[in-house]
Simulated scan of single mutants.
Amino acid sequence: MKTSNPVLARLGQAAERERATGYAPAGPYGQPGTGQPYPTQAGHPAAPPTVAPMTVDDVVVKTVTLLGITGLSAAAAWVLVPDSLLFGAWIGAAIVGLVLGLVISFSRVANPALVVTYAVVEGVFVGLVSKFFEVVAGYQGIVLQAVVATFGVFFLMAALYKMKVIRATPKFTRGLIAAMVGVFAVMMINLVLSLFGVDTGLRSGGPVAIIFSLICIVIASLSFVLSFHEVEEGVRLGLPQRYSWTAAFGILVSLIWLYIEILRLLSFLQGDD
């Protein structure tokens, strides 16, 4: 089985090794976590246990689960965090979420507990950002508009991918990853400059800010293509079922990024009214 994605290729090889060799559970036939194959009573290796491969349905269920956790966490943060602590909690959740996201992204194994924790933390972040725009800044109805627009874009991209209008070719993947890295670098530079009182105009609500938000929205939307491709390739490679959590994590990251950018753009547009 071959794939152009080196990460998926590595995971596919790991899946093949896992199917070829079993791991003994607690009890008389081996110790947990030792990687010892299952022995028979005669001392010869027995057939390894079946490793259930991930399916598209697994990814859908995990994605819906993570969205539900994120939504509940967002609602709780909206209600429980007072306005006086809004900014501090917002920044704290953003930093913790970034660290968790990097750990999950560069991890060699799927960690459902870590992914769920990320959903909880990002829910706090999303809830506080939403409360700021809707309540503190006074943009009535902006959260509902952003939610509808976010899922509208998601389903549109899913339809385009399903109809093969957009495919994750190697050239497309390289270009999109380069664009994502570039945008992230610009965001970091803008953040550092803002700490020193330098206003670049990227987040001030003017024409430059609107154009930058539109660019971010386009890139975030196209990132779904990479997520859909990873799910498709993961199923084809027969990755273990637990990797559906990793695939769902990728979709959740894109959804949150897209929602925040749409929320920001709507605030710019309403501010011009």
Rank of each mutant, 00 (worst) to 15 (best):
S4R: 13
G127C: 04
V135M: 06
V186Q: 04
R242S: 00
M54H: 09
V109G: 03
P170M: 08
M187H: 08
V136N: 15
V64H: 06
P48E: 12
D57V: 07
Q13N: 00
G206R: 03
G152K: 12
I251Q: 01
G12K: 10
L156Y: 03
A146R: 10
K131L: 03
L98S: 12
V231D: 07
H229M: 12
P39M: 06
I210N: 11
G205A: 04
F196K: 11
F106P: 06
A15Q: 11
L86N: 13
K131C: 02
R10L: 04
A75Q: 10
T173Q: 14
Q270W: 12
V51T: 14
V129M: 14
P25T: 01
L255I: 15
L263K: 02
L191I: 10
F106I: 13
D272F: 01
M1P: 13
G201H: 07
G22E: 02
A15Y: 14
G138A: 09
T65N: 00
V126W: 10
A24W: 05
P240Q: 04
I217C: 08
Q241G: 01
G141Y: 14
L263H: 03
S244K: 02
G97P: 07
G30T: 06
M180S: 13
K171A: 11
E233L: 09
M54Y: 01
D58C: 06
A14E: 14
F196Q: 14
L191N: 14
P32Y: 13
G152M: 12
L80T: 13
V136M: 13
K2H: 00
T70N: 11
G206P: 03
V129E: 01
Q36K: 00
L202I: 07
A178F: 12
I262F: 08
I189F: 11
S223M: 06
A248P: 00
G201R: 14
A113M: 11
S213M: 15
M180T: 13
V109R: 15
T150V: 02
P170F: 05
V56E: 05
R203I: 04
D83K: 07
I95W: 13
F154T: 04
T34Y: 02
V120T: 02
M54G: 03
F249G: 02
V165L: 12
P32S: 07
L239Y: 10
I91P: 06
D272E: 12
I189L: 08
T246I: 00
V186W: 07
Q241M: 08
F154I: 14
G35I: 10
K2A: 04
F196P: 03
A159C: 08
V231F: 06
P28I: 05
F268V: 03
I219C: 09
G12S: 07
A119Y: 10
A119D: 05
R264P: 01
A74E: 08
